[in-house]
Amino acid sequence: MISPAARDALATWLDQQRALHGAAENTVTAYRGDVADFLAFMTSHKAQTQGLGALAQITISDMRAWMARTRGPNVGPRSMARKLSAVKAFYRWLAEREGFEPTAVLSTRAPKFTKKLPRPLAVDAARAMIDCVELQSRHPWVAARDVAVLTLLWGCGLRISEALGLKGADAPLPDALRITGKGGKERVVPVLPAARAAVEDYLRACPYPREDTAPLFRAVRGGALGPRAISQVMSQARMQLGLPASATPHAMRHSFATHLLDAGGDLRAIQELLGHASLSTTQAYTAVDTARLLEVYNRAHPKAG
Rank of each mutant, 00 (worst) to 15 (best):
T103L: 15
A195K: 00
R187Q: 09
E96T: 14
L135W: 01
A125M: 09
E101W: 07
L94M: 15
E101T: 01
A205M: 08
R204G: 05
A95T: 13
S137V: 15
E162C: 02
E96M: 13
T108W: 00
S107P: 00
A197D: 13
C156I: 05
R97V: 15
D170G: 07
P102L: 09
A197C: 03
R187K: 10
V142I: 15
A95C: 09
R97A: 15
E134F: 14
V123I: 11
R178F: 09
L177Q: 00
P140S: 13
A125Y: 03
E101A: 12
K115Q: 07
P207N: 03
P190A: 12
P172V: 05
K112A: 12
A143D: 09
L121A: 14
V133R: 08
A163C: 10
I160C: 13
L192S: 12
V199S: 05
K167A: 15
V199F: 01
M129K: 02
D124G: 14
A195Y: 06
A197N: 05
K167I: 09
L150F: 11
E200W: 02
G181D: 04
V191L: 12
D146N: 11
S161D: 13
D201F: 00
C206Q: 08
I179M: 02
K115I: 08
R196L: 04
L152H: 01
A171D: 12
T114W: 04
L153I: 04
L164M: 10
A198N: 00
A125V: 04
K116G: 06
V133G: 09
R145T: 02
P118S: 03
R119L: 02
C156W: 05
Q136K: 03
E101V: 06
S107G: 02
A144M: 07
A104E: 05
R196K: 12
G184W: 15
R178M: 11
G184D: 04
G155D: 10
G184K: 09
K185V: 15
A171P: 14
P140F: 15
F100C: 09
V147F: 05
R178E: 05
R187H: 06
G155C: 01
Y202A: 11
A128S: 11
G157P: 03
R145E: 02
G168Q: 07
A198G: 10
A171W: 14
A197K: 13
R145F: 06
G183I: 12
